[in-house]
């Protein structure tokens, strides 16, 4: 689709806003609708749009598959690591109250970190799956 000028220009204009919106959804999920799951999917859709318009080899330069596959595991590890941080802080597994002196502040921090982990895993998984399906030779 590289020859369609309208698609190229519109998607170039849209992609930064899609990513910004994903970050908004990610970090505003505590107060309004949203969170890691939705943000991850929206963030991945920015890369998928880029891949559809500019071709797979170009999006692979922006998001190298080696990095993206490692991010899948990194998100899960970040989540589980937060759980262990609670454990070492003297609480139960995934108990965020002990992460800070004030339990509510600790909860807030813990939720933000694990939501980020969720978002990372979801986004990286979706991008990887898209790469694999789109890169399959017929």
């Amino acid at each position: 689709m590289r020859h369609h000028r309208v698609l190229r220009i519109i998607s170039k204009l849209l992609i930064p806003f899609i990513m910004l919106f994903a970050l908004y959804v990610q970090f505003h999920g505590d107060f309004g609708p949203g969170g890691g799951f939705q943000a991850g999917v929206i963030f991945a859709s920015a890369f998928i749009l880029y891949g559809l318009i500019f071709g797979l080899e170009n999006v692979r330069k922006v998001a190298p598959p080696a990095v993206v596959t490692r991010l899948i595991a990194a998100g899960v590890l970040l989540y589980a690591g937060t759980g262990y941080a609670g454990l070492f802080g003297g609480g139960n597994f995934l108990d965020y109250s002990v992460l800070r002196a004030d339990p509510v502040a600790g909860q807030h921090l813990g939720i933000m970190v694990i939501e980020f982990g969720v978002g990372t895993t979801v986004a990286a998984t979706m991008i990887t799956i898209f790469f694999l399906f789109a890169g399959r030779d017929r």
Binding site: G29, D30, F31, G32, P33, G35, G75, V76, Y79, A80, G83, F93, L94, Y96, P103, V104, A105, Q107, H108, G110, I111, I114, E115, G117, V118, T121, V122
Partner: peptide, 24 residues
């Protein structure tokens, strides 16, 4: 207890964080 207005996020990430770890 959690300090977030969005109850869905509180349950998802805190009360049932173990569940969500499984989903991830």
């Amino acid at each position: 207890e959690v300090g977030l207005p969005n109850v869905v996020t509180s349950i998802l990430a805190s009360y049932r964080g173990y569940d969500t770890l499984g989903e991830v």
